[in-house]
Computed example of a mutant assay.
Amino acid sequence: MTSGTIDATPVLRLTPSDEEVAIRDAVRKICAKYPEDHMRQSAERGDAMADVWADLAAGGFVGLNIPEEWGGGGLGMSGLIVVAEETSRAAKGSVMLVVSSAIAGSVLSRHATEEQKDRWLRGIADGTTKLAFAITEPDAGSNAHNLRTELRRSGDGYVLDGQKTFISGAESADAILVVARLRDTNGQLAQPVLCVVDANAPGLRRHTIAMPFIGADEQSQLFFDGVAVDADRLIGGENGGMSAVFDGLNPERVIIAALMTGNGQRALDKATEYARDRTVWSTPIGAHQGVAHPLAEAKIELELARLMTQKAAALVDAGSAEAGEAANMAKYAAAEASIKCVDQAIQTHGGNGFTIEYGISDLWWFARLMRTAPVSREMILNYVAQHSLKLPRSY
């Protein structure tokens, strides 16, 4: 992490800087203001932990990755992963750190016009504006080239029609960064384009997807029926949509990885505290290797995932060509490590691990989701096999 600027040379610190320590401490203090089960309470209220977000925003923490000239901290992904990890460790993690700060913030920083940055990026930086990100469709998940949501020219602007699914945080977003395909003059769906649509735009409908409890943010289906899009809402113009999309996906994977390492650490914190205190036959259960060794293995895997997450953040910040590989590996490793940590925490607690009171089962849903979303472990393995190992493409 650098002080106020992003270094063009990837640097991976093996010990935290004073700046990182200060950020972690400040974020922990903010999270500690709220009760342990605040996320569950927030989910029941449907307020997406707006109070926690407001406190983090007031401290300047939700826009740490945004360039300083647009009101952010200028610390890139290396700064934002600290916030993501600490909030998740406290069970206060927000999907908006992924979709608004990381994805939309990165895309707008690199591809928006000065006017668009002034309109949207400043608000993302200070947390007063939140953008969701809509790419997935019922028939186009991993295959983004099969998108059917379309943007067609109409007068001086455009009209948007189509459907999106599993869109995170749309219920609390001010606007949505939508990936569509431009319908060309021959009537064919052409290259992907990006546009910003107000969350309350006429012709936009949202339906909540019923899910088991995984967090304060909802999953939604979005329906666009003749939604008017002004020309100044296109990000990257008519020809820059795909490159803009990819510039948001690596940051997405990095921040998800940080949320997962935080989630896994929370599970280990709970498990080790319980293993030290829970006594059976006059001996703390943590003294038994059958309990201790699986927790130690989980800790090792979690630390390896954290290291890859930090490496991926540094490569993204430097604009390295190796960022895609590292970001995918980090997301894969962190999700797997988080699942292992949570599973072992449940096993350590025995029956208590399944109760709402101990708060571990909620961690499992979050971890298990991220093995599948936003890109599955299988697609990451395909990526590594093809791009890292140079094996023939399998799909």
Rank of each mutant, 00 (worst) to 15 (best):
N143M: 07
V82Y: 01
T283E: 12
E378F: 11
A271T: 00
V107Q: 01
F213V: 02
D247Q: 06
R13C: 08
E273Q: 13
W364V: 03
I356C: 00
K117E: 11
I235V: 15
T5W: 10
Y158W: 15
A216T: 08
A132I: 04
G262E: 01
I135Y: 14
E150S: 15
D317M: 06
D269R: 05
G127Q: 02
V245P: 00
N382P: 03
P67V: 09
A296E: 13
G63C: 08
M211A: 12
G74H: 02
S282L: 15
A258C: 03
R148S: 13
A312R: 04
G264Q: 09
A367L: 05
M329H: 05
V197C: 02
G105T: 06
A58H: 06
K311I: 04
S100F: 00
F166E: 10
D55H: 09
E137Q: 09
N352V: 00
L121G: 05
A313D: 01
G248K: 05
E303L: 12
A8D: 08
E36N: 14
P202N: 09
T129L: 15
A313P: 02
S106W: 02
K164L: 04
D18N: 12
N146I: 00
L108Q: 13
S88E: 15
S101K: 02
D198L: 13
T355M: 12
G123F: 04
D317C: 08
A326C: 02
V99Q: 08
P392I: 09
I235R: 03
F213R: 07
D225K: 15
A201M: 09
V11I: 15
A244Q: 03
F213E: 01
C341F: 01
G71N: 03
A91F: 13
P284G: 08
P138M: 10
D161F: 13
V193G: 02
D174P: 03
V179I: 11
E378C: 06
G46Y: 12
A298D: 06
E68S: 14
P284V: 11
A90T: 02
M370T: 07
L147S: 07
G71H: 01
G59Y: 06
D225N: 15
T9S: 08
T283A: 09
A318N: 04
S394G: 06
A173Y: 00
V27S: 07
A170I: 01
R24Q: 06
E325D: 09
V316N: 05
A125T: 05
E297Q: 13
G59C: 10
Q310G: 03
T261N: 03
F354M: 11
D126E: 04
G350A: 05
S78I: 00
L222Y: 07
Y332A: 03
T128Y: 00
A104G: 07
K331L: 07
T2R: 13
Q310Y: 11
D217N: 13
K340M: 12
R148A: 11
G162H: 06
P16E: 14
Q347T: 15
S168E: 10
V83R: 03
M260T: 02
V197E: 02
A54C: 03
H349C: 11
I360R: 06
D217M: 11
E322S: 14
V197Q: 00
D362V: 06
A201F: 07
R40T: 06
K33D: 14
E114A: 14
A334V: 12
G162D: 05
N143A: 12
M329T: 09
Q188F: 09
T272K: 10
L381N: 12
A298Q: 10
R377W: 14
D25R: 13
D269N: 11
Q116H: 06
R110P: 02
D198P: 11
